[in-house]
């Protein structure tokens, strides 16, 4: 009898803690999802302007999306979108190549400059990344990349040029590939290049996907570098500067709901990429060859 009572009270205690935990998690989840929910609501709101009088819109419309893509006279969103896409594709190709080659060298090859290079990368990482931004602008200007269509080249260089410093995650991944595989390949007469291209790369799909996606996402989410490099050349703006400008004082009243629509348009593909990538990210951290 007593035992039954104790069991019941334990069960009840468990039930109470579980309920508390679930209520707490729901509250937290609401806090975390609230801003996202709100921007989706705003993107369908019919009344313009940033000053809301009620939380839920009074009427709903798709006009915000329509005018985002058709009203190109002041802020040309479709053009910004193509600009960003072009820049993202090229900088993604270059930086993937840079990251993979550097991390392979750091992980598998032993040479004189290796430790020095790693220390250098660590020291460079301690400087505020845009401290040299103004200097980068003048360097690009002095080789004629600051005007007209060359701005795109300049942005590609800015996003991918120093990618060789971001080797930590990929190096960690390569470190987990057993060295025995390399040695077996050497015994079969492979050169180092063949080991890299025929043994390591095929085993590294997760980290390649991860590198490709992160570098592809870079230009979509950065706006500081883009702002400094583009200056007033509105023709070459990326979406990030475009969205930022929509919230500036002279545009905010007319463009606020369009900003929300633009934010939704950008966020959906990036969110999908991210959730897809997250699997590779955890795989990448846990290693290539499972025991």
């Amino acid at each position: 009898m007593n035992e039954k009572k104790a069991l019941r009270s334990m069960k009840r205690k468990k039930f109470v803690t579980n309920s508390i935990v679930h209520v707490l998690l729901s509250i937290l989840a609401v806090i975390w999802v609230f801003p996202i929910f709100w921007v989706v609501l705003t993107s369908f709101r019919a009344e313009k302007g940033s000053y809301v009088s009620s939380f839920f819109p009074k009427s709903y419309t798709l006009d915000n999306y329509k005018s985002l893509f058709t009203n190109t006279s002041v802020l040309n969103f479709p053009k910004m979108f193509t600009n960003t896409l072009i820049i993202a594709i090229f900088s993604c190709l270059i930086s993937t190549f840079f990251v993979l080659s550097v991390s392979y060298c750091m992980s598998r090859l032993r040479f004189k400059m290796r430790k020095k290079y790693m220390n250098m990368a660590m020291i460079l990482g301690l400087f505020p990344s845009f401290m040299s931004m103004v200097a980068v602008y003048y360097i690009l200007k002095s080789i004629g990349l600051s005007e007209g269509a060359m701005i795109r080249v300049a942005l590609v260089l800015v996003y991918s040029g120093a990618a060789g410093l971001q080797f930590y995650i990929a190096k960690g991944f390569f470190d987990t590939i057993p060295k025995a595989l390399d040695e077996a390949a050497y015994i079969d007469g492979c050169t180092k290049w063949q080991v890299f291209s025929k043994v390591t790369i095929p085993l590294s799909k997760p980290i390649i996907v991860y590198t490709v996606l992160t570098s592809f996402m870079g230009p979509w989410v950065d706006f500081i570098f883009a702002k400094v490099i583009c200056r007033a050349n509105a023709d070459y703006y990326t979406v990030a500067i475009g969205l930022w400008r929509m919230l500036e004082r002279e545009y905010i009243d007319k463009w606020y709901t369009c900003f929300a629509a633009g934010a939704v348009c950008i966020s959906i593909p990036i969110a999908i990429l991210f959730i897809f990538m997250q699997r590779f990210y955890t795989d990448g951290l846990s290693g290539a060859v499972k025991g």
Binding site: F98, V102, L124, M133, A135, V158
Partner: peptide, 26 residues
């Protein structure tokens, strides 16, 4: 034997031009 030279040259040039040179300039 010198694969590291092949693989590191371009990334290193990128770092020199877009990271180290601007930093020293600053």
């Amino acid at each position: 034997k010198n694969l590291h030279k092949t693989l590191m040259t371009l990334p290193m040039l990128g770092i020199l031009a877009l990271s180290i040179l601007p930093l020293i300039f600053m």
